[in-house]
């Protein structure tokens, strides 16, 4: 391994191996085998290779949450992960949560509460909201949890903090919170 300065100085273009790899993803329950350039992010694999365009690209740098999906049941930013790092993993995208005919309760609540304006951040918001409720139920603390040894409450403060990795340029936050609280209370 060389230091950063070495890398800047001389670019050796002879790579020690191939620049593409085969990766097997289980996306929304279906196995998909892809041969991709190693540089392909999980986000680009979903959108450009598998044509699952529900997952959105906002910033491509982990800053906005539009690309949020589930890997083996946990929410992640798919823009900051490589497809080749997910060989064998189970991926769930917004398309896997529900369909227009059979919506997930959170999808229905976003519609009922007008939890969006342009809709671009919405798939990421809904995936994060689902994870937020699961993380709360699993007793995972957050920055605003007062007592680390008790179960965190299903409060607006907890939900807002846990949703802070999802930015909405339209500022639909008030209605997003209503939608998530609605589903939280119904449970």
């Amino acid at each position: 391994m060389n230091t950063h300065s070495d890398m800047q100085a001389g670019q050796d273009t002879a790579l020690p191996g191939p620049t593409t790899s085969k990766t097997r993803l289980v996306v929304n329950g279906t196995e998909r085998v892809l041969e991709v350039d190693n540089r392909t992010t999980l986000l680009d694999a979903l959108r450009e290779h598998l044509r699952l365009t529900g997952t959105k690209k906002g910033c491509d740098h982990g800053q906005c949450g539009a690309c949020t999906c589930f890997v083996n049941g946990q929410r992640v930013n798919s823009c900051l992960s490589l497809a080749v790092m997910h060989d064998g993993d189970e991926i769930t995208t917004i398309e896997g949560l529900g369909t227009p005919e059979d919506m997930d309760p959170l999808q229905a609540a976003f519609v009922a509460h007008d939890g969006f304006q342009c809709g671009y951040c919405t798939p990421g918001q809904i995936c994060s909201a689902k994870a937020t409720l699961e993380e709360l139920r699993a007793g995972i603390p957050s920055h605003v949890t007062k007592d680390l040894l008790a179960n965190p409450p299903l409060s607006p403060e907890e939900i807002k903090e846990r949703m802070s990795g999802n930015i909405c340029r339209c500022g639909a936050y008030a209605n997003i919170l209503e939608a998530v609280l609605d589903v939280a209370e119904a449970r």
Binding site: G65, R75, N77, S128
Partner: peptide, 12 residues
């Protein structure tokens, strides 16, 4: 840890 990054980032 909980004061850093976001839920998604902390999972990775």
């Amino acid at each position: 840890l909980m004061a850093g990054a976001s839920g998604q980032l902390r999972n990775k």
